[in-house]
Amino acid sequence: MSVTRQRLAVSAAAAVAALTMLTGCGSDDGASGGGEKKLPETATGSLEHIASEVGCKPDMQTDADTIRQAICKNSDGDFNGRFVLATFATDRGQREWLNGAKDYGGYYLVGRKWVAVGEQKTVTALRGRLGGTMEEGSAHMNGGH
């Protein structure tokens, strides 16, 4: 495994571990009723720009050439949650990070060269602001959430 891949794998594992510590493993099915909202165009830009789109002041954890990663906390009515936001220098780096992270479970909102990781309700709410596609980690690690 190359040094870059090792760093990405360690970073992915650290993101999921940090998220687990921040949010716990509590399940709030929080299924929202109502009609489907039209999703916005998928956000693009720097980590800071994407964070500002959801009212987050990012707490930087990793600031490297290949990946920038921060913990975000938000409480604004649409959602109340903590999540990890990561941006990547390349599409390949993003995909490698996701492939490693998804082994640890979790819920992922994926945009072009960025990922948000959090509880299902938080990631679903983020999608209403940032667009993107939802991906789910390994089912055996999500504990039926």
Rank of each mutant, 00 (worst) to 15 (best):
F79C: 12
A86R: 00
Y108H: 04
K121H: 07
D59N: 10
G106M: 06
S46E: 11
Y108R: 05
A31I: 08
V84L: 05
I67V: 15
A18N: 13
E41G: 02
E41T: 04
A12Q: 03
G81R: 04
F79V: 02
S11H: 12
A64K: 09
D76I: 11
M21I: 01
S11E: 13
V54S: 01
A9Y: 12
C25T: 15
G111C: 00
V10M: 01
M141W: 05
E136L: 02
V3A: 07
A116V: 06
L47H: 03
F88I: 04
I50K: 12
E135S: 13
T20P: 03
D78E: 08
G144N: 08
T66I: 11
Q120R: 14
W97T: 08
A43V: 02
L22V: 01
G144E: 13
W114G: 08
G131W: 00
G118C: 10
G144A: 09
N99A: 14
A13L: 12
C72K: 04
T133Y: 00
G132E: 01
G33W: 10
E96I: 07
T124L: 13
S52M: 08
T44Y: 11
D103K: 15
L85Y: 07
A13T: 11
V10Q: 08
K37H: 08
A101F: 11
D59C: 00
D103I: 07
K113G: 11
A86H: 02
G132N: 00
A15H: 03
T87K: 09
G35W: 01
S27N: 14
G143W: 10
G143Q: 06
F88S: 03
A12E: 06
G118V: 05
T66Q: 10
Q61E: 14
K37Q: 07
E136Y: 04
F79W: 08
D103N: 11
L98S: 03
M1Q: 07
R5Y: 15
G144H: 06
D91E: 06
G26N: 07
K102I: 07
Q61T: 11
A64W: 10
D59Q: 05
T124H: 09
L85F: 12
Y107M: 02
S32E: 10
T44K: 15
E119Q: 15
A139K: 12
S52A: 14
K57D: 09
T44V: 14
L109P: 04
A13I: 15
T62V: 15
V54L: 04
P58L: 03
C56M: 09
D65Q: 08
C56I: 08
A13W: 04
L109M: 13
D59A: 07
A17R: 12
F79M: 03
A139V: 10
D59P: 00
G30W: 12
H145I: 07
H49C: 03
G132S: 00
L109I: 15
A9R: 09
Q6T: 04
K102V: 06
K121V: 01
A17T: 10
M60Y: 03
G137A: 02
A17L: 14
R129L: 02
S11R: 06
I71T: 06
